[in-house]
């Protein structure tokens, strides 16, 4: 399958190398577990639809995550013959089943701190790249990370204490 001379091999390799980490990043960004897979799959499909543009970006995996999180298509479902609300993927809620307590703690971080943690630790972007993608100064990234780590460390310590 080709798009006007663009081979799909490069995209297939990109997909294989990034699909899992993008899913983890989207989950940590607050998208519900039940909808994150669809959102990430759709984002990769859009990446392939615009591969010439996306492949030229400095951080295509960050583009996929942003696209998945911003898809913001929410669904209702019928339950017991009634239309009942279901939470949309734009909700950074604590519902669903986050893959770990720590991911749930990441979801509860303030937005910027959450974004920095996702980009730095789940997408493996360095400080400069994270700053570039978010349009903020590298020092600001470091400051957000510092605060986020303090919160997450507290969470880990409390969790360990509870488990003893």
């Amino acid at each position: 399958m080709r798009h006007s001379g663009v081979s799909n091999r490069e995209f297939v390799e990109f997909y294989a190398a990034n699909k899992d980490r993008c899913l983890r990043a989207v989950l940590a960004s607050g998208v519900r577990s039940v909808e994150a897979e669809d959102a990430v799959a759709e984002a990769f499909a859009r990446a392939w639809a615009s591969w010439r543009k996306v492949r030229a970006l400095k951080h295509p995996s960050a583009w996929v995550v942003r696209t998945a999180v911003n898809a913001n298509i929410s669904w209702w479902r019928k339950r017991r013959r009634e239309v009942v609300w279901d939470r949309p993927p734009d909700s950074a809620t604590t519902d669903g089943e986050p893959p770990s307590d720590l991911v749930a703690a990441v979801r509860r971080l303030p937005r910027r701190q959450r974004e920095v943690v996702v980009l730095r630790y789940l997408l493996d972007l360095n400080t400069a790249a994270t700053a570039d993608w978010l349009g903020i100064a590298p020092g600001t990234v470091t400051a957000h990370l510092h605060h986020a780590l303090a919160t997450l460390r507290t969470h880990l310590v409390e969790t360990e204490g509870t488990n003893r």
């Binding site: 799959a41 893959p99 991911v103 630790y121």
Partner: peptide, 28 residues
Amino acid sequence: VLDALRTGTADVVLDRPVDDILRRGARL
């Protein structure tokens, strides 16, 4: 924190065949 994040999400994998992604992308 990094270790805990990676360990805690190690079993989170996207189980979608790449062919499905390519088809959907081509349709778009």
